[in-house]
Amino acid sequence: MREPIVVVEDLTFFYSGSKEPALQDVSLTFHRGETALLVGATGAGKSTLYMCLNGLIPHLVPGRVGGRVIVDGTPTSDLSISELAQKVGFVFQSPDVQLFSHTVREELAFGPENLGLTVSEILHRIHVAAATIGIEELFEREPAYLSGGQQQSVAIGAIWAMLPEILIMDEPTSNLDPQSSQRVLELIRALNREHGKTVLIAEHKIDAAARFADSVLVLHEGRIAMQGGPRQVFSQAEELHQMGLVAPTAAEVAFQLSKYGYTFDSWPLTSEEGIQAFGELL
């Protein structure tokens, strides 16, 4: 658990032509097998950080970079985009941006084919990915006609077939109904817990996401504003509010009650913990 897999050192990035840095002096470490929740208002620098982790910065996006990003022991500047694609998988917010094939099978095969793998290896990968994600019955379906939840599962499956160590998920449930959101979040959790993958997830549905994050990283105006365990970060509601952010409902209620002098041994994050903590006061 404590082996570092991503190390970011004093990272600063200016988009070409911009005088304001999109990221400034960002230093952080993700450990193998960790699930980190990335929180920040629109424009805080989340997307820029993703692009630094998957190598689009510095390889493709024009701009000025300071500091460095080390993925699995090697600086991203020394790795090609295709090498990085095998280490860092990126799942977009809307699966329809990512999916383009006529069948789910082709969609899953696309990444491995581009790695120049043998046919048997490709077949093996897509079957493992489909079985892990639970989408085998969708093999012959056209992604465009699947439900939102199924599409997002296929998008994750297509990334899974690349066998990345690190999965970056940019608000993977924002277009899904509550049941599908729950399924996708459970899937991500299983990929993390059962397969030891490192997950970096940005999610506005903070109530659902807070419960399974090992750590929380708060970005604000290109800088790391807060960093720590979920209980540590979400107990500081006042600081979050100043950045236009909120904590999970139970933590927000605990914060309001604390203004009246009520204290909590363990800061509640989930509804269940809230019931327990507030029930003890009653």
Binding site: G40, A41, T42, Q93, E171, S174, N175, H204, G244, L245
Partner: peptide
């Protein structure tokens, strides 16, 4: 409010 942060929501 889909995909909006808490402020724009």
């Amino acid at each position: 409010t889909t995909g909006q942060d808490s402020l724009s929501r």
